[in-house]
Amino acid sequence: MRDLTLLMTAGGVLIFVIVAALFTIAIRSRQGAIGHRGGMRLVLWAGAIVPTVVLAALLIGTLPAMRPMKADDRALVVDVSGEQFWWRVGYRAADGGAFAAANEVRIPVGRTVDFRLSAGDVIHSFWIPGLAGKVDMIPGRTNRLVARATRAGRYRGQCAEFCGLSHALMAFDVVAMEPAAFDRWLTEQRRPPPTPATLVAQRGARMFADNGCGGCHAVAGTPATGRIGPDFSHIAGRATLGAGIMPMSTANLVRFIRNAPAVKPGARMPRYTHLAPADALAIARYLETLK
């Protein structure tokens, strides 16, 4: 990729300099310095043949780089579904047990990842500029995107098809991890989160159940099995909240719990402004134990 950028830049500069030099010569020459025949020959070569040959060489030379990556047998399959306005993520059982996640996709470095992309409501588009191309997510269809991270790190993703009021607030992170760390993470994800240890977190767990949060959000190992909103089984392990729009912090959790529509216009989560701040804080403390 870097080679291609260098080649294009150097080639562009070279052509620009040649054209500028020809301009200078043409302006400074006296009339009739070049005959009709010579002029026509110049037009034919510099105007048609050379550009055609250069473009053909670029096309043939770069087409192999445009070939979509093929998924091999070892490929990690990750299901991602676009929802208004978040990302439903599913890891399959093939690697030892299926589990759900949301708004953050973790992948191992060096291994091919086969994203199976769908949508739950309207058309979304799955786009990770630093890692792979952009593929539409269409309700009723499963599109595929094959990618491979060559370096560990955090790659920002974004919905790239206007999908409603909070379209611009629908981001996510792809975290590429070293294979050993990824395997540890997989093992942790397959376990239900620990039961809350502190009093305030235990109260938060009760508030979570009493306010019906489990009707939309799932927490593995508890009666909360809702699938309307993001899965919370390991929400505290994510770096961001609200589909990549703000850092994971207690204050932001409280804000989102009490008034999600203010943070994310058009989101399906209703207001919980009737919740006392202390109760919302307790729920936030509970969510922070879900690692």
């Binding site: 048609a48 053909a56 096309l59 043939i60 087409l63 070939r67 979509p68 595929r144 995107l145």
Partner: peptide, 22 residues
């Protein structure tokens, strides 16, 4: 004819090199 010759080549190149539906 010259233009069409080049255009046919440029259309055929991706079809022959990117053998994929995506």
């Amino acid at each position: 004819a010259g233009l069409s010759f080049v255009a046919v080549l440029f259309t055929a190149a991706p079809a022959l090199m990117l053998t994929d539906c995506r």
